[in-house]
Design a protein around this nucleic acid. Structure first.
Lengths: 153, 153
DNA sequence: CCCGAATAGTTGAATGTTCAACAAAAAGGC
DNA sequence: GCCTTTTTGTTGAACATTCAACTATTCGGG
């Protein structure tokens, strides 16, 4: 049965809009910097990071999708793009013939290593430098609560 | 002169990744719900909201871009799309012959009114229900600090 | 063992976004 | 008033993401 909408009160409205504006602006800023300095969007940078952290710098497509929070389709397209850039290569999975492994090439690793300092500096300048240590802690708790809540049933 | 990169410590790393995951998942969830229930992405919903709040439900393209935090190009494309959907109309600006006004049609208003309860409910369920009142307050302060910081020189 | 269901990944089309280039009008210095 | 600069908005191409459809393989019950 349809119930009354639980509208946002003015404080909630203000919070919601502030969050929208802040997260959008932050991501767009970092995206633009990364595009300018490393020739790739942030989503692609994340893929390279996750691969660089994996054993032998390789991961199943499905795990990579999980880690980067992207759909399989999106990852397929992205890896195709990264492959033509020479930063990633695909290999057959030895244990599952449906599977594919994505692996970071030397060139991809070098590109990542070159991009990382500038990007990390950006994250620090645009995010951490704006917040007190207490706020950083709060943001972590809030984010983890959110992720937790969103991944429920 | 090039200086040492200020790398993220483990806590900062955890915070950054948690924030990334949470904000991305939240936006994707709301986007999917809105697409399913109202046939439009969240960015378009925001355009309709801002128009609905403006005097006479009309705004200059540049103001609308500012309010929705989008580039002029993006807004041009979006409004073109909303126009073919019949939700928005364009008009010449009487005071500036370069200008265009975007205005919400009756049909657009009705669509927005139909979509709003479901969307607001989604925001409440996915965001506010996950946080304590104190955390909501913290999130507002953090977001405002961030926006403030990002809009500096 | 076999068959239906679930899983892994890709594909192409439709949709959104970005970027650079552009045209038109307004602003502003002198 | 004239000329440069700035502002306003659009355009098309390149790029990225979503969605639904599809193939291939593995899993799991009987």
């Amino acid at each position: 049965m349809m119930v009354m909408t639980r509208w946002l009160n003015p404080d909630e409205q203000r919070t919601w809009r502030a969050f929208l504006a802040a997260s959008r602006t932050l991501m767009e800023t970092l995206d633009r910097e990364l595009q300018r300095d490393a020739g790739m969007p942030h989503a692609y940078y994340e893929i390279l990071v996750r691969l660089s952290e994996a054993p032998e710098r390789r991961l199943r497509m499905s795990e990579l999708a999980e880690l980067t929070g992207s759909s399989r389709s999106r990852l397929s397209h992205a890896v195709a793009r990264l492959e033509t850039a020479g930063w990633v290569r695909r290999e057959e999975c030895p244990t599952d013939r449906r599977g594919q492994l994505a692996l970071l090439t030397e060139e991809g690793f070098a590109t990542l290593a070159a991009a990382a300092p500038g990007h990390v500096e950006g994250v620090r300048r645009h995010l951490f430098d704006a917040l007190s240590p207490a706020q950083v802690d709060q943001l972590r708790r809030i984010s983890e609560a959110l992720t937790d809540h969103l991944s429920r049933p």
